[in-house]
Design a protein around this nucleic acid. Sequence first.
DNA 1: CGAGCAACCTGCATGC
DNA 2: TGCATGCAGGTTGCTC
Length: 271
Amino acid sequence: MPELPEVETTLRGISAHVLNSPIIRVNIRNARLRWPIPDDLASSLNQQTITSIKRRAKYLLLLTDKGTLIIHLGMSGSLRIVPPESAYDKHEHVEFCFANGKALRLKDPRRFGAVLWTTEPVDEHPLLSHLGPEPLSEHFNAASLYKLSRNKTVAVKQFIMNSRVVVGIGNIYANEALFASGIHPRRAAGKISKQRYERLCTESKRILEQAISQGGTTLKDFVGGTGKPGYFKQELLVYGRTDQPCVKCQKPLKEIRLGNRSTVYCTNCQK
DNA sequence: CGAGCAACCTGCATGC
DNA sequence: TGCATGCAGGTTGCTC
């Protein structure tokens, strides 16, 4: 579920509870996530203190003096702070217990998420080393997007969902950003003008920031670190609105599949 | 090289 | 009610 706004919401929700208190125990109830949780994770983390938390793309990076805990939420993951001794939910696979009495739990029904540990500089980790710019940074801009897209025949929606191009934009926000920009999702990335990329960058940033400010999008079961759902769903103008009227022109929205992902757009407003 | 798609999982909605 | 089917927020890694 989680795209960038949901991961950012999670980071903000858990930070105050997990920073600067030693990890006193790690409970691994099911190690079989996207990649197996390392056998030695508990011993690596024992008595370690998280000194800062960062987000890179959709990865949460929890830094200690000895290494970095990398957490990805996959399609269905969420992190929550729970009181000590809380009953486990069926899909709570990992628990980090802190000296301050709080516990951080990863719940992930589909198990596409990941929990990894690295002692190397985290930016050099194989999962992170190839990543493109953060969409809310100045490095995500029309000039570089335009340059990178020349001669590319790939559909623009798939182009902006490619983490080498820009990170953090998943299926929901790709649909929304293209609608807001008036760009047809299937248009070839290489045939879009710099001006239109200007619009796409501006709208992408605006939508992501607005979603973060509303705690992300909860479609089904996403909750931020403190258990609250996100409220951006009510702001979605195309995603999940197939056959409903376009908010701008009232024509029914059309759904197609692009790269095997559902793609909703207005045939009248997006060219 | 790029395009397409299978794979990893569970839960849920739909249709017969 | 049961069962089969298809779809879901992501990403890697295969084949062609």
